[in-house]
Amino acid sequence: MTTYCDRCGEPATAGDHAACRTAREMEPPRYCPSCRRRMIVQVTPLGWTARCSKHGEPAS
């Protein structure tokens, strides 16, 4: 369940996140969509990994 925007960290239902959706086409997520924690993000030439200390790692 997505509660927060994974780019800006604000509540997913607050405001318009069109700019976030556009940016996410080229960028990895920065915030955990479940708990709003900053994720540990590693970008490589082949993709990215992002890990929340509480919820683990989504796939790129």
Rank of each mutant, 00 (worst) to 15 (best):
C35W: 05
S53C: 07
P28N: 09
T44S: 02
R38D: 07
P28Q: 08
L46W: 07
A23V: 07
S53T: 13
R37E: 10
L46R: 01
E25A: 11
A23G: 06
P29Y: 06
M26P: 10
S34K: 02
V41I: 06
R37P: 11
R51G: 02
E25F: 15
W48Q: 05
P29Q: 08
R51T: 00
R24P: 04
L46F: 05
A23W: 15
I40K: 07
R36H: 06
S53Q: 12
C20Y: 04
A23L: 07
E25Y: 15
M39T: 05
V41R: 01
R51V: 01
R51D: 00
T49I: 05
E27S: 06
R38F: 12
A50E: 03
Y31F: 09
W48L: 05
K54A: 06
Q42L: 03
A50N: 02
A23E: 04
K54R: 10
L46E: 14
T49E: 15
P28C: 09
C35P: 01
Q42Y: 00
K54N: 11
A50D: 06
H55R: 03
R24F: 08
R38L: 13
T22R: 09
I40L: 11
G47R: 03
S34V: 12
M39P: 06
E27M: 08
R30S: 07
P33F: 01
S34C: 14
I40N: 14
P29D: 15
V41T: 09
G47Q: 01
H55S: 09
S53D: 11
